[in-house]
Simulated scan of single mutants.
Amino acid sequence: MKHQNYRNHRRFVVGYHIVTFLIILLFIVGSIRGLLKATDDNLYSTSLLVLVGFILLLMFFYLRIFALKAQDRAIRAEEKLRYFILTGKALSTTITTRQIIGLRFASDDEFVSLVEKAEKENLSESEIKRSIRNWKPDHYRV
């Protein structure tokens, strides 16, 4: 597996992000064309196809969003536990979930100092990731 860093850590699945999305869009375009050419005999079925297309599009987006939300909750719990193990203290409530998600790539050596820096300087998730010197890869992301 390739070494993970800030530039290549995002997960991009061609079959999902491009192929599935394009197929759904083609389905919607084709069903709308069919609806525009529909007669009274097939108006109901062609309108249902348009509706199915938009349902598929919504499902495409929400399936990804729901999976990422569940992953974010798991990451938040894991990183709070890691902070407690490393310091013996609870993680501050001022650290946001997005900041915690950025911190998950930090090695144990720099994790605590990055938490303090993120809290003090209100760093964004991206700024935190760019600050990491010793990247801890996460190959099990959604």
Rank of each mutant, 00 (worst) to 15 (best):
L63W: 06
F54W: 12
I75A: 10
F61L: 11
I55L: 15
V13P: 00
K136V: 04
Q99R: 07
K80I: 03
E125L: 06
W135R: 08
L68P: 04
L48C: 08
M59Y: 11
N134C: 09
R141P: 03
L26D: 08
V14S: 03
I55H: 05
V29F: 14
M1Q: 07
A90W: 02
A106S: 10
R130T: 03
I18C: 08
R82A: 09
A70N: 12
Q71D: 13
K37A: 13
V52K: 00
T20D: 08
D109T: 13
N5A: 02
L56M: 15
T39M: 03
I23M: 12
R7W: 07
Y62G: 01
L35F: 15
V14W: 14
F54D: 03
T93W: 00
F111Y: 15
Y16T: 06
P137E: 06
F61Q: 08
G53R: 03
K129I: 10
F21T: 05
R7Q: 11
M1N: 09
K2H: 06
S126K: 11
P137D: 09
M59C: 06
F66S: 12
D109S: 14
L81Q: 08
R141M: 12
I85W: 02
G102S: 00
L22W: 11
G88K: 01
R73M: 09
I24W: 03
S113E: 14
K80W: 02
D109A: 15
L103Q: 07
I32Q: 04
L25Y: 04
K117S: 07
L48Y: 08
R98G: 07
R64S: 10
T46E: 14
G30L: 08
V14H: 11
Y44R: 08
S45V: 13
R33F: 15
F105D: 01
R76Y: 13
D40Q: 11
K120S: 15
I24Q: 05
T87F: 00
T96K: 14
V29N: 05
E116S: 04
T96S: 15
S45T: 13
G53D: 07
S131W: 00
K129N: 00
N134Y: 15
L22M: 12
V14D: 05
G15A: 01
R10F: 13
K136A: 12
I55Y: 10
